[in-house]
Amino acid sequence: MTNIQGRAKSDRVTLHDVARAAGVSKSSVSRLLDERLPRSNSEVAQRVRKVAKELGYVRDISAANLRRGNTSMIGLIVPRLTDTVMAMLYEALQRAASKTGKVVIVATTDETPEAERRAADTLIGRGVESLILATARHDDPFTKELAERGVKYVQALRTDGIGLSSIGDDQLGGYLATRHLIDLGHRKIGLIAGPAFASTASKRTAGYHQAMQEARLPVDESWIVPSTFGIESGREAVKQLISLPDRPTAVFAVNDNIAIGAFAAIHQMGLSVPQDISLVGYNDIPIVSHLTTPMTSVHVPFDQIASAAFELLNADELSPQERTKISIPTLIPRQSTAPIKA
């Protein structure tokens, strides 16, 4: 028998390792360790289980479920469903899935990488065919880990720049939002930039810089405030901008929730939108058109992004250029933006 003690603990133990150590075939190990089958108490089965335990073998439920074939279930992982953007993505994916007789089941992570991994294992354990991830973070090896396990996945809305991705053109959207304010005569434009780990935030920030540079407008670093994607974060960020000695006359928030928080704080501080400060959000969630001052926002084509995500999942072979599908956003001007006062 192979020396079990000699194996490095950091190595992932495979069925092949157990088979070699137990002196049986890989197919025998797979059958004897499959908990869905009747438990055998033969001498061979007992030896296989003993070796598996000593080696620290953990059954890879992802590979097992992928071998079972079509289950008609797609797993979706999002930060939270209380975020309207993620709820809209889920509904769009559900509509796209229903056209092919599939159903989307969802798990949330609250933006925690560890929870994302647990969510993936839970969904795979339930037999999903593949995963759609709306939780991508820069420099996170999670998608690489999925690929190594043979798990089929696509990223939606956010991307790590490596795996299959269906996203909006966030840099263009950030450019359109900022360019709109510049065209209204604003020169001091603040940015509530969102979290740096999300491609949506970083690309929209890049669009802001692109528009400001194109217009040859200086950017004071104090005008750029990082935030989460939450309402309260927007509230605190805009207070910081308003308290500046030479405060911006307009603010672009890279997410509608952030913009809603900023909108509330501006009014609480005795100022008004757009008379004192013009405000632009992003995603065009339904509520922003029903605020007391309807908000200008960048509309994201969620249904296009959802359909493109399924196209990527169903594609057999893709060139590097085809691995990312980009949908085009549009600016929706409303009453929260106005020309700067002379």
Rank of each mutant, 00 (worst) to 15 (best):
N41F: 11
L89R: 06
M269F: 09
R118E: 09
D34Y: 02
D139W: 03
G56N: 10
R334Y: 04
D170M: 00
I285N: 06
K9D: 03
D34H: 01
R216V: 13
K188P: 01
R49S: 12
L93V: 02
A211S: 04
W223M: 01
L318P: 03
I182S: 08
S272R: 14
A97H: 07
D276K: 02
D303S: 14
R80N: 11
L15I: 12
S62D: 04
I132P: 05
E114W: 00
K144L: 14
R117Y: 05
V238I: 14
Q268T: 13
H180P: 02
T108M: 10
V24P: 00
R39H: 10
V219C: 03
T324S: 11
G234W: 04
Y208H: 03
G207F: 01
H186L: 06
L291D: 10
A19S: 10
F302N: 03
A309W: 13
G174E: 00
V151R: 07
L279H: 10
G6Q: 11
H209N: 06
D183F: 02
A97I: 07
G190F: 02
Q213P: 02
V238R: 08
G69N: 12
E221T: 15
S30V: 09
S222T: 13
K102Y: 09
A156P: 05
L217W: 07
D256I: 05
I332W: 02
G281Y: 02
A315E: 08
T324I: 06
R117D: 03
V48R: 09
V58F: 07
R49T: 03
L123F: 07
Q94F: 00
S319V: 01
E129Y: 10
D17A: 15
G174C: 05
T84G: 03
D17N: 12
I266Y: 12
D139G: 01
P286F: 09
L89W: 11
M86P: 01
D121G: 04
A309G: 06
A147Q: 14
S62G: 15
L93F: 02
A342L: 15
G69A: 09
K26C: 01
H299D: 05
T159S: 13
L176Q: 10
L32H: 11
H138L: 06
L184W: 00
F142T: 13
G230N: 12
R59W: 01
Q335D: 13
R323S: 10
T337M: 05
G270R: 06
Y153P: 04
Q46E: 14
S202H: 04
P245S: 15
V51E: 11
R137G: 03
S319T: 12
T112W: 02
K26Q: 13
R158G: 00
L55Q: 08
Q46F: 00
S98Q: 13
A250G: 10
L133H: 08
T71Q: 09
A92H: 01
A156L: 12
S27E: 08
G161A: 05
K239M: 12
R12T: 15
D256Y: 11
D276G: 04
E116M: 06
V13G: 02
N3Y: 04
D83N: 14
